[in-house]
Amino acid sequence: MTSGPWTPGDGGNEDKRHAPATLRNRDAIAAVLADWLPATGKILEIASGSGEHIVHFAAVFPQLGWQPSDPDPAGLTSIAAYRAEAGRANIMPPLALDASASEWPIDRADAILCINMVHISPWEATLGLFAGAAALLAPDAPLILYGPYREPDVPTAESNLAFDASLRGRNPAWGLRDTKDVKAAATNAGFAFAERRAMPANNLMLLFRRT
Rank of each mutant, 00 (worst) to 15 (best):
W6K: 00
P8V: 07
P8K: 05
G9L: 10
G9Y: 07
G12I: 09
D15G: 12
A21K: 11
L23T: 10
V32E: 14
L33I: 04
D35H: 13
L37M: 14
P38H: 11
T40A: 14
I43W: 07
G49H: 01
S50P: 15
E52W: 01
I54Q: 14
A58Q: 08
L64K: 00
Q67D: 13
Q67L: 05
P68I: 01
G75P: 12
G75V: 14
S78R: 10
R83M: 04
A84H: 15
S100P: 08
S102T: 14
E103A: 15
E103M: 13
P105F: 03
I112C: 12
L113H: 00
H119P: 00
H119V: 06
P122R: 10
W123E: 02
G128T: 01
L129V: 01
F130V: 01
G132M: 11
A135F: 04
A135S: 15
A135M: 05
L136S: 00
A138L: 08
P142Q: 09
L143I: 03
Y146F: 13
P148R: 07
R150W: 03
E151N: 03
V154H: 02
T156R: 02
E158F: 07
R170Y: 10
D178F: 01
T179V: 15
K180V: 14
V182F: 05
K183F: 00
A184Q: 10
A185I: 00
N188A: 15
A189S: 14
F193G: 02
E195N: 04
R196V: 04
M199G: 11
M205D: 08
L206Y: 03
F208V: 02
T211I: 10
